[in-house]
Computed example of a mutant assay.
Amino acid sequence: MSLIARLRAYATEALGVGESEPVDDTHLAATALLVHVARVDGILAPAESERLSRIVQGRYAEGPDAARALIARATAVDAETRDLASLVEMIPHEANAAERQDLLTMAWSVAAADGSVDEFEEALVERLGRLLGFDEAAITAARRSGQRSVGAV
């Protein structure tokens, strides 16, 4: 049984999160990474939660109910996953550079949603960029883009 399948089973059993709609594994993994970024400083600020919801609804889910369900599943995946590298491993190897760059930009926008990027968020998203295969210039470009996008999806 794959890691994603085990985590889905856990979410269904322990959290009552059903499988009413099939979830794309890539979308689940990307959302789990964004949840991880939003929670890294120990505080899920309302602005971060709202930004996360808007991104997920705009990119991975049809409507607010589907976005909430995906975020709930992703939160369970994040809670059951050892670390950032394990979450990144869930992103398919065939994801192209543009898709990975978009994910990194979204991570920066979630980190900046509350008006600042603290040291934990900065270190985490920079590490995410490296794990996704980007150099410092690409990570910095994604940061600028993500911070500019705060307030608009």
Rank of each mutant, 00 (worst) to 15 (best):
W108T: 07
W108Q: 09
W108E: 03
W108M: 01
W108K: 00
S109P: 08
S109H: 06
V110H: 04
V110G: 05
V110R: 03
A111W: 11
A111I: 03
A111E: 11
A112S: 09
A112N: 08
A112C: 08
A112M: 01
A112K: 02
A112V: 02
A113G: 07
A113N: 08
A113V: 02
A113C: 11
D114H: 10
D114E: 12
D114Q: 05
D114L: 06
G115A: 01
G115Y: 04
G115W: 03
G115R: 00
S116Y: 06
S116E: 05
S116N: 10
S116K: 15
V117K: 04
V117T: 08
D118A: 08
E119C: 00
E119R: 12
E119G: 02
E119D: 11
F120N: 07
F120W: 12
F120S: 10
F120H: 12
F120Q: 11
E121W: 02
E122V: 00
E122C: 04
A123C: 00
L124H: 03
L124V: 11
L124S: 08
L124F: 12
V125N: 07
V125S: 01
V125M: 09
E126L: 00
E126C: 04
E126D: 06
E126H: 08
R127M: 05
R127E: 12
R127Q: 05
L128E: 10
L128Q: 13
L128V: 07
L128M: 11
G129T: 14
G129V: 07
G129D: 06
G129R: 05
R130K: 06
L131P: 03
L131W: 04
L131V: 01
L131D: 11
L132E: 14
L132Y: 13
G133I: 15
G133F: 12
G133T: 04
F134K: 11
F134Y: 09
D135A: 13
E136Y: 12
E136R: 12
E136V: 15
E136A: 15
A137M: 12
A137R: 15
A137P: 00
A137D: 15
A138G: 10
A138R: 15
A138N: 02
A138C: 06
I139A: 09
I139N: 10
I139S: 09
I139K: 07
I139M: 10
A141V: 03
A141Q: 14
